[in-house]
Amino acid sequence: MTAKQLRERLELQLLSEPDPDRDVTGGYAGDLLSWVMGRAQSGDAWVTIMTNRNIVAVAALADPACVIVAEDSVVEPDVIALACEKGINLYRSSRTSFDLCCSIGSLLGV
């Protein structure tokens, strides 16, 4: 499933989608950036409530397929612009991390 397909199926708000065809191969939830950096896998859909600029750096390095901001956490315009510049797919949802992960797991057949 591609990042764009995942966004459509979960009805996520599109903030940045420079790489819509990126394959989503798994999921990861976490808000401690070093923890995420050490454990998330390339290709994961990363679900978090963190929205500072550093999530873009973490995403650029850990290489998830997309970042999904849960619970409508506020994302500043400069973070969205940076995500776009760095090639990071960034989405947002009103749903909780747990709820989003359940749906991602079921869509991916995990």
Binding site: D31, L32, S34, W35
Partner: peptide, 16 residues
């Protein structure tokens, strides 16, 4: 509060 300081930095550096 920024999501750092979890005590994972040096262990991650060693791990990777």
């Amino acid at each position: 509060s920024l999501g750092f300081g979890a005590g994972m930095g040096l262990p991650n550096m060693k791990r990777y």
